[in-house]
Simulated scan of single mutants.
Amino acid sequence: MEGKDCREIFKKNSIKTTKQRELVFGVLTDSDVPLTVEEIYVILMEQEKNMSLSTIYRILDVFVSKNLVQKSNITDNKAVYEVIGIGHKHHIICISCGKIIALDHCPIKEYEIALENETKFEIISHKLVFFGYCPDCKKK
């Protein structure tokens, strides 16, 4: 994500813009799957952007508190983070190696509408995660 776009999002959400926040937000917006803090750290190191794990945690806490980023525990009780509002995503997770794949569409949109009609709830979001074995682990 471009720095200008980050700055506009941060300003709109009353977040002070820093280079480190821009870098972490950029890593999250560029990813198709939720990332752990460690994965964000590795990506930043590969980009030769030096940042401590504690700094990444603090930045993510700010993003979560401002509802820019969603924190979930969908794998091995490790928290994963993804940007809210940049596409509606569901995931398939390999229970052997932990690989995560994002689905490119929502398979339950019609069901959500029917559920709203039946229950009279106003559904504002949902989360769907499939678990199984990836092709590589299935071969083992």
Rank of each mutant, 00 (worst) to 15 (best):
residue 2 E to G: 13
residue 3 G to Q: 12
residue 6 C to L: 04
residue 10 F to Q: 02
residue 10 F to H: 08
residue 11 K to W: 02
residue 11 K to N: 04
residue 11 K to D: 04
residue 12 K to T: 06
residue 13 N to R: 06
residue 17 T to W: 12
residue 20 Q to F: 12
residue 22 E to H: 07
residue 23 L to H: 14
residue 23 L to W: 15
residue 26 G to P: 01
residue 26 G to F: 00
residue 27 V to H: 01
residue 28 L to Q: 07
residue 30 D to I: 08
residue 31 S to D: 01
residue 32 D to W: 00
residue 32 D to C: 03
residue 32 D to L: 11
residue 35 L to E: 00
residue 36 T to G: 01
residue 42 V to R: 09
residue 49 K to D: 09
residue 50 N to H: 07
residue 54 S to L: 12
residue 54 S to I: 08
residue 55 T to D: 14
residue 55 T to M: 12
residue 55 T to E: 10
residue 56 I to S: 07
residue 58 R to H: 10
residue 61 D to H: 14
residue 62 V to W: 02
residue 64 V to S: 09
residue 64 V to E: 01
residue 65 S to Y: 00
residue 66 K to D: 01
residue 67 N to T: 09
residue 67 N to V: 06
residue 69 V to F: 02
residue 70 Q to W: 05
residue 71 K to Q: 03
residue 71 K to Y: 00
residue 77 N to A: 12
residue 82 E to T: 13
residue 86 I to D: 13
residue 88 H to P: 10
residue 89 K to G: 07
residue 89 K to C: 11
residue 91 H to N: 14
residue 94 C to K: 09
residue 96 S to P: 05
residue 97 C to F: 11
residue 100 I to W: 01
residue 101 I to M: 10
residue 101 I to V: 15
residue 102 A to T: 05
residue 104 D to N: 15
residue 106 C to Y: 02
residue 107 P to L: 04
residue 109 K to R: 01
residue 111 Y to S: 07
residue 112 E to T: 07
residue 116 E to G: 00
residue 116 E to H: 06
residue 122 E to V: 05
residue 122 E to L: 09
residue 124 I to P: 03
residue 125 S to C: 03
residue 126 H to K: 15
residue 128 L to R: 05
residue 130 F to S: 15
residue 130 F to T: 11
residue 130 F to R: 13
residue 131 F to Y: 15
residue 132 G to W: 11
residue 134 C to F: 14
residue 136 D to I: 08
residue 139 K to F: 11
